[in-house]
Amino acid sequence: MSVLLHRDTRVVVQGITGHQGSFHAQQMIAYGTRVVAGVSPSKAGTTHLSVPVYASVREAVERDGAEAAIVFVPAAMARDAAFEAVAAGVRLLVMIPEHLPVLDTMAIHTFCRLRGVTLVGPNTFGLITPGESKLGIMPSHIYRPGPVGIIARSGTLSYEIAASLSDAGLGQSSVVGMGGDPVVGQTFTDLLPLMEADPQTEAVVLVGEIGGSAEERAAELVRTMTKPVVAYLAGKSAPEGKRMGHAGAIIERGRGTLESKRAALEAAGARVCEMPWEISAAVRSALG
């Protein structure tokens, strides 16, 4: 079992003939993701990576039953691409691009909510169900199927942690990237209940960072969960008022500090690790 993404999920790749889209579509297909079609208006009617390329997402939905879309178009075109996918009827939308204007993301999020579409991202590495399917840009080889769910705001840091878990013999059930932007679709709060309900998941790792209040909100749910939660929070040394790489990683007017997040999660019963390399031992001991 897993959350959101399964081996049978039928995927359409928007921007499949672009540099990034093409590379990652190939990686996804190699991993076993069921990519059924691609979209690229200028290359419509051709075949790329052995899948049909269409002018619109609608064709991918109608002809090939695409139910999930992953977007690899430049930020300036991302809102259009997202609206197209939602209007065409996909149920899962993964937005890889970084630097989307926040107002665009808010509009995309609202449209998704109206149509019951699950939005992951933007500025995310995507999501992966190890051993089944991946919908994103993460390096496939670091994951193993297993009992640990991971929800992360950061890509490479979550790779570091997933790899250390795999090395320790702790595989993963589902790994989901929230995205590094201030406004994103799925957050810890949306994903924790899915992890709690997923029979394969036995423990959850949260990879948080400074900025916003997603971790504090997550703590409210952690309190009610039966499965152990282990967290690592990045940005202890970050100065106030500076954006640390991610648009959303900023302490603003005393809010979004690491201390606030750590205190909330610890009070809720989560184990908060000081350093990323402490995670696998903490998970191991939480699993008993």
Binding site: R153, S154, G155, E160, I210, A238, M244, P276
Partner: peptide, 17 residues
């Protein structure tokens, strides 16, 4: 220098650690 925002933050934290 690190690759990725989260890794770069975690690297600073490790130095401080």
């Amino acid at each position: 220098m690190a690759n990725g925002a989260g890794m770069a933050m975690a690297t600073l934290d490790a130095i401080a650690h």
